[in-house]
Nucleic acid binder design. Structure first.
Length: 236
DNA sequence: GCAAAGATTTGCT
DNA sequence: GCAAATCTTTGCC
Protein backbone atom coordinates (compact mmCIF):
# COMPACT_ATOMS: atom_id res chain seq x y z
CA UNK A 1 0.00 0.00 0.00
CA UNK A 2 1.14 3.46 -0.71
CA UNK A 3 0.11 6.84 0.66
CA UNK A 4 0.67 8.90 -2.44
CA UNK A 5 0.26 6.76 -5.57
CA UNK A 6 1.52 8.71 -8.57
CA UNK A 7 -1.39 10.22 -10.54
CA UNK A 8 -1.80 8.39 -13.82
CA UNK A 9 -3.12 11.44 -15.65
CA UNK A 10 0.24 13.16 -15.24
CA UNK A 11 1.72 10.39 -17.37
CA UNK A 12 -1.11 10.45 -19.88
CA UNK A 13 -0.20 13.85 -21.30
CA UNK A 14 3.01 14.73 -23.14
CA UNK A 15 5.96 12.43 -22.47
CA UNK A 16 8.47 15.29 -22.33
CA UNK A 17 6.38 17.00 -19.64
CA UNK A 18 6.02 13.70 -17.81
CA UNK A 19 9.80 13.27 -17.85
CA UNK A 20 10.22 16.38 -15.70
CA UNK A 21 7.38 15.37 -13.42
CA UNK A 22 8.80 11.96 -12.56
CA UNK A 23 12.16 13.35 -11.43
CA UNK A 24 12.16 13.21 -7.65
CA UNK A 25 9.35 10.64 -7.61
CA UNK A 26 9.84 7.54 -5.43
CA UNK A 27 10.35 4.12 -6.97
CA UNK A 28 9.23 1.47 -4.48
CA UNK A 29 9.69 -2.30 -4.30
CA UNK A 30 7.90 -4.48 -1.76
CA UNK A 31 6.74 -3.61 1.75
CA UNK A 32 7.66 -4.19 5.37
CA UNK A 33 11.28 -4.53 6.47
CA UNK A 34 12.44 -5.51 2.97
CA UNK A 35 10.96 -2.42 1.35
CA UNK A 36 13.22 -0.56 -1.07
CA UNK A 37 12.65 3.12 -1.89
CA UNK A 38 14.65 5.42 -4.17
CA UNK A 39 14.23 8.79 -5.84
CA UNK A 40 14.19 8.85 -9.63
CA UNK A 41 16.97 11.22 -10.73
CA UNK A 42 17.44 10.38 -14.42
CA UNK A 43 15.09 9.35 -17.24
CA UNK A 44 14.97 9.30 -21.03
CA UNK A 45 11.89 9.89 -23.17
CA UNK A 46 11.02 7.60 -26.10
CA UNK A 47 8.16 9.19 -27.95
CA UNK A 48 5.91 7.71 -30.61
CA UNK A 49 6.54 5.24 -33.43
CA UNK A 50 8.35 7.84 -35.51
CA UNK A 51 11.12 8.08 -32.87
CA UNK A 52 13.86 6.10 -34.61
CA UNK A 53 15.62 5.47 -31.29
CA UNK A 54 12.54 3.82 -29.78
CA UNK A 55 11.61 0.15 -29.82
CA UNK A 56 8.23 1.36 -31.08
CA UNK A 57 9.60 2.61 -34.39
CA UNK A 58 8.93 -0.77 -36.04
CA UNK A 59 5.34 -0.81 -34.88
CA UNK A 60 3.75 -3.08 -32.34
CA UNK A 61 5.68 -6.28 -31.60
CA UNK A 62 5.43 -8.89 -28.89
CA UNK A 63 8.25 -7.23 -26.94
CA UNK A 64 7.07 -3.60 -27.04
CA UNK A 65 3.33 -4.28 -26.82
CA UNK A 66 2.88 -2.64 -23.42
CA UNK A 67 4.25 0.63 -24.82
CA UNK A 68 1.04 0.83 -26.84
CA UNK A 69 -1.10 0.32 -23.75
CA UNK A 70 -2.24 2.62 -20.93
CA UNK A 71 0.15 4.94 -19.03
CA UNK A 72 1.65 4.00 -15.67
CA UNK A 73 2.51 0.45 -16.72
CA UNK A 74 6.04 -0.99 -16.51
CA UNK A 75 7.80 -1.90 -19.77
CA UNK A 76 10.75 -4.16 -18.93
CA UNK A 77 13.08 -5.70 -21.51
CA UNK A 78 16.45 -7.44 -21.66
CA UNK A 79 19.38 -5.62 -23.28
CA UNK A 80 22.65 -7.13 -24.47
CA UNK A 81 21.54 -10.51 -23.23
CA UNK A 82 22.26 -9.70 -19.58
CA UNK A 83 20.76 -6.49 -18.25
CA UNK A 84 17.18 -5.41 -17.77
CA UNK A 85 15.78 -1.93 -18.38
CA UNK A 86 12.73 -0.41 -16.67
CA UNK A 87 10.41 2.01 -18.47
CA UNK A 88 7.28 3.80 -17.31
CA UNK A 89 4.71 3.86 -20.13
CA UNK A 90 3.30 7.30 -20.96
CA UNK A 91 0.54 8.80 -23.12
CA UNK A 92 -2.85 7.37 -23.96
CA UNK A 93 -3.41 3.85 -25.26
CA UNK A 94 -2.58 3.56 -28.94
CA UNK A 95 0.32 6.00 -28.84
CA UNK A 96 3.58 4.19 -27.92
CA UNK A 97 5.79 6.17 -25.54
CA UNK A 98 7.72 5.57 -22.34
CA UNK A 99 10.30 6.90 -19.92
CA UNK A 100 13.44 4.80 -19.42
CA UNK A 101 14.48 4.99 -15.75
CA UNK A 102 18.25 5.44 -15.95
CA UNK A 103 19.16 6.21 -12.34
CA UNK A 104 17.68 6.39 -8.85
CA UNK A 105 19.02 7.60 -5.50
CA UNK A 106 18.47 5.24 -2.52
CA UNK A 107 16.18 6.54 0.24
CA UNK A 108 15.33 3.39 2.17
CA UNK A 109 16.34 -0.27 2.05
CA UNK A 110 19.90 0.38 0.98
CA UNK A 111 21.13 -2.91 2.46
CA UNK A 112 18.47 -4.78 0.51
CA UNK A 113 19.65 -3.07 -2.70
CA UNK A 114 23.23 -4.14 -2.05
CA UNK A 115 22.09 -7.72 -1.55
CA UNK A 116 20.12 -7.59 -4.79
CA UNK A 117 23.11 -6.14 -6.65
CA UNK A 118 25.35 -8.93 -5.36
CA UNK A 119 22.75 -11.57 -6.26
CA UNK A 120 22.44 -10.14 -9.74
CA UNK A 121 26.20 -9.95 -10.29
CA UNK A 122 26.80 -13.52 -9.09
CA UNK A 123 23.95 -14.86 -11.18
CA UNK A 124 25.69 -13.71 -14.32
CA UNK A 125 27.08 -16.84 -16.01
CA UNK A 126 30.26 -14.92 -16.64
CA UNK A 127 31.10 -14.82 -12.95
CA UNK A 128 31.80 -18.36 -11.87
CA UNK A 129 35.13 -18.51 -10.07
CA UNK A 130 34.75 -18.24 -6.30
CA UNK A 131 37.52 -15.67 -5.95
CA UNK A 132 35.93 -13.58 -8.64
CA UNK A 133 32.51 -13.73 -6.99
CA UNK A 134 33.99 -12.73 -3.67
CA UNK A 135 35.81 -9.79 -5.17
CA UNK A 136 32.58 -8.65 -6.84
CA UNK A 137 30.69 -8.90 -3.56
CA UNK A 138 33.20 -6.80 -1.65
CA UNK A 139 33.25 -4.27 -4.44
CA UNK A 140 29.48 -3.79 -4.26
CA UNK A 141 29.54 -3.64 -0.47
CA UNK A 142 32.06 -0.81 -0.72
CA UNK A 143 30.05 1.30 -3.13
CA UNK A 144 28.63 4.62 -1.95
CA UNK A 145 24.82 4.51 -1.81
CA UNK A 146 24.64 6.94 -4.71
CA UNK A 147 26.24 4.34 -7.00
CA UNK A 148 23.96 1.43 -6.20
CA UNK A 149 21.54 2.25 -9.01
CA UNK A 150 23.33 4.78 -11.21
CA UNK A 151 22.53 3.23 -14.59
CA UNK A 152 19.50 1.58 -16.22
CA UNK A 153 20.80 -1.97 -15.75
CA UNK A 154 21.83 -1.19 -12.19
CA UNK A 155 18.39 0.20 -11.29
CA UNK A 156 16.88 -3.14 -12.25
CA UNK A 157 19.58 -5.10 -10.43
CA UNK A 158 19.12 -3.10 -7.20
CA UNK A 159 15.33 -3.43 -7.36
CA UNK A 160 15.25 -7.07 -8.54
CA UNK A 161 13.40 -6.08 -11.69
CA UNK A 162 13.16 -8.53 -14.59
CA UNK A 163 10.72 -9.39 -17.34
CA UNK A 164 8.28 -10.88 -14.85
CA UNK A 165 7.59 -7.24 -13.91
CA UNK A 166 6.65 -6.35 -17.47
CA UNK A 167 3.06 -5.06 -17.56
CA UNK A 168 2.77 -4.21 -13.85
CA UNK A 169 0.66 -1.15 -13.09
CA UNK A 170 3.08 1.12 -11.23
CA UNK A 171 0.36 3.67 -10.40
CA UNK A 172 -1.49 1.06 -8.36
CA UNK A 173 -0.54 1.42 -4.70
CA UNK A 174 -0.99 -2.33 -4.24
CA UNK A 175 1.58 -3.29 -6.86
CA UNK A 176 4.82 -4.77 -5.55
CA UNK A 177 6.69 -2.41 -7.89
CA UNK A 178 5.21 1.09 -7.93
CA UNK A 179 5.85 4.83 -8.05
CA UNK A 180 4.80 7.38 -5.46
CA UNK A 181 4.72 11.18 -5.46
CA UNK A 182 7.65 12.85 -3.71
CA UNK A 183 7.02 13.79 -0.06
CA UNK A 184 5.76 17.36 0.53
CA UNK A 185 8.99 18.34 2.26
CA UNK A 186 11.12 17.80 -0.84
CA UNK A 187 12.31 21.07 -2.33
CA UNK A 188 12.27 22.00 -6.02
CA UNK A 189 14.72 20.21 -8.30
CA UNK A 190 17.05 21.67 -10.88
CA UNK A 191 16.54 19.77 -14.10
CA UNK A 192 19.27 19.34 -16.70
CA UNK A 193 18.83 17.85 -20.17
CA UNK A 194 20.98 16.26 -22.85
CA UNK A 195 20.93 13.77 -25.72
CA UNK A 196 19.94 10.19 -25.00
CA UNK A 197 22.64 7.63 -24.27
CA UNK A 198 23.47 4.51 -26.26
CA UNK A 199 21.32 5.20 -29.32
CA UNK A 200 24.09 5.65 -31.87
CA UNK A 201 22.10 3.55 -34.32
CA UNK A 202 19.44 6.27 -34.62
CA UNK A 203 19.60 8.87 -37.43
CA UNK A 204 19.22 12.60 -36.90
CA UNK A 205 17.32 14.40 -35.61
CA UNK A 206 16.54 11.61 -33.11
CA UNK A 207 20.18 11.09 -32.23
CA UNK A 208 20.55 14.61 -30.85
CA UNK A 209 17.15 15.29 -29.34
CA UNK A 210 17.75 16.47 -25.72
CA UNK A 211 15.35 13.92 -24.31
CA UNK A 212 17.49 12.80 -21.40
CA UNK A 213 16.36 14.54 -18.20
CA UNK A 214 18.24 14.41 -14.93
CA UNK A 215 18.56 16.11 -11.56
CA UNK A 216 21.50 18.51 -11.62
CA UNK A 217 23.92 17.86 -8.78
CA UNK A 218 22.74 14.34 -7.96
CA UNK A 219 25.64 11.96 -7.40
CA UNK A 220 23.42 9.09 -8.53
CA UNK A 221 23.11 10.31 -12.13
CA UNK A 222 24.88 8.01 -14.61
CA UNK A 223 27.75 8.93 -16.89
CA UNK A 224 28.72 12.47 -17.61
CA UNK A 225 25.57 14.14 -16.27
CA UNK A 226 26.85 13.26 -12.82
CA UNK A 227 29.04 16.34 -12.77
CA UNK A 228 26.41 18.81 -13.87
CA UNK A 229 25.65 21.02 -10.91
CA UNK A 230 24.41 24.24 -12.47
CA UNK A 231 21.47 25.90 -10.81
CA UNK A 232 19.83 26.63 -14.10
CA UNK A 233 18.51 24.46 -16.86
CA UNK A 234 21.46 22.99 -18.73
CA UNK A 235 21.73 21.41 -22.13
CA UNK A 236 24.87 19.34 -22.48
C1' DG B 1 15.88 -21.85 -39.70
C1' DC B 2 19.99 -18.52 -39.42
C1' DA B 3 22.37 -14.21 -38.86
C1' DA B 4 22.84 -9.68 -36.78
C1' DA B 5 22.45 -6.24 -33.46
C1' DG B 6 21.32 -4.19 -29.18
C1' DA B 7 17.88 2.09 -24.66
C1' DT B 8 24.73 -1.87 -20.76
C1' DT B 9 28.39 -2.75 -17.67
C1' DT B 10 32.88 -4.14 -16.51
C1' DG B 11 37.71 -4.88 -16.72
C1' DC B 12 41.92 -4.39 -18.96
C1' DT B 13 45.22 -1.75 -22.09
C1' DG C 1 39.46 4.29 -24.42
C1' DC C 2 38.17 -0.37 -26.19
C1' DA C 3 36.32 -4.94 -26.34
C1' DA C 4 34.05 -8.83 -24.26
C1' DA C 5 30.12 -11.12 -22.20
C1' DT C 6 25.39 -13.05 -23.41
C1' DC C 7 20.75 -14.15 -25.37
C1' DT C 8 16.35 -12.30 -26.98
C1' DT C 9 14.15 -10.16 -30.69
C1' DT C 10 13.79 -9.14 -35.29
C1' DG C 11 14.51 -9.64 -40.23
C1' DC C 12 15.30 -12.17 -44.10
C1' DC C 13 15.86 -16.73 -46.70
Amino acid sequence: MTDRPFPRDLLAAGTLDAARLVLGVFLIRGSGPERRVARIVEVEAYVGDDDMASHAHLGRTKRNAVMFGPPGVAYVYLVYGMYHCLNIVTEASGRPAALLVRAVEPVEGEAEMRLARVRSAQTRPNRNATADADRTRRQIEGLPASRLASGPGLVCAAFSIDRSDNGIDMCDGNSDLRIEAAPPGDGPLTVATGPRIGIGYAPEPWLSQPWRYFVAGSAAVSGRGRNVTGRREVTE
